[in-house]
Simulated scan of single mutants.
Amino acid sequence: MSGQIPAASMQYLSFILAGEEYALGILQVKEIIEYDTVTRIPGAPVWVRGVFNLRGSVVPVVDVAVKLGMPPATLTRWSCIVVVELKLNGERLVLGLLADAIGQVMELDPGEVVPPPSFGTPVHVDYLMGMGRPGGGKKFVLLMDIDKVLSSQEVLVASTLRTQAEGPAQKDA
């Protein structure tokens, strides 16, 4: 198993990617915003959708579906950006994750979280902390380990794009 199953009850925010429900620990989520103007950056990796201006800060937007080996997200009226905070070498980094739609905030007890199977999930098992069964029901939610989905090298690439885009995005502010 890649992540640690929590010892206490935890809250998660669920979101939809390519028809599957995923969730992140609520403490990593800073806010959810409507998908609006995202500026493409020439030469950016295919999984970086672009950058946007969040109250004067340039924030890279990651198309998580592409990063997970799925087709690029199709923008709809429910598309949104989940703004998350990661830590890299002690430095705080804010990224936007493109989601098809937001699900719900759910609380999962340790007994409702199981290790991911070694096969049969739409994403690589190393990218998952586990699978949650809200309310002990039949449906599973894939608990994403965003720190593993984006390697430190990829986070550095996104951070560099943010720096490169600060000039043009600051003019738009």
Rank of each mutant, 00 (worst) to 15 (best):
M1R: 01
M1S: 11
S2R: 07
G3M: 08
Q11G: 14
Y12D: 02
Y12S: 04
L13C: 11
L17M: 04
A18N: 12
G19P: 01
E21P: 04
L24G: 06
G25L: 08
I26N: 05
Q28L: 10
V29R: 13
V29Y: 14
I33V: 15
D36K: 15
T37L: 06
T39I: 13
V48T: 12
R49P: 00
G50I: 08
V51T: 14
N53T: 07
L54E: 03
L54N: 11
V59H: 02
P60V: 00
P60Q: 01
V64M: 15
M70Q: 04
A73L: 14
L75N: 02
T76P: 00
S79V: 04
L88S: 08
N89I: 03
G90H: 03
V94H: 08
L95M: 10
L97W: 14
D100L: 12
D100F: 05
A101H: 07
M106I: 15
E107N: 12
L108C: 13
D109K: 11
V113P: 02
P115R: 11
P115F: 10
P116L: 08
P116N: 11
G120N: 02
G120T: 06
H124R: 10
H124C: 06
D126K: 10
M129S: 14
M129K: 11
G130V: 00
K138G: 08
F140Y: 11
V141P: 01
L143M: 07
M144S: 06
D145A: 00
K148H: 04
V149C: 11
V149M: 10
S152D: 13
S152M: 13
S152K: 15
Q153C: 11
Q153E: 15
Q153K: 15
V157S: 01
S159Y: 15
R162E: 14
E166R: 09
E166G: 03
G167D: 07
G167M: 08
A173H: 10
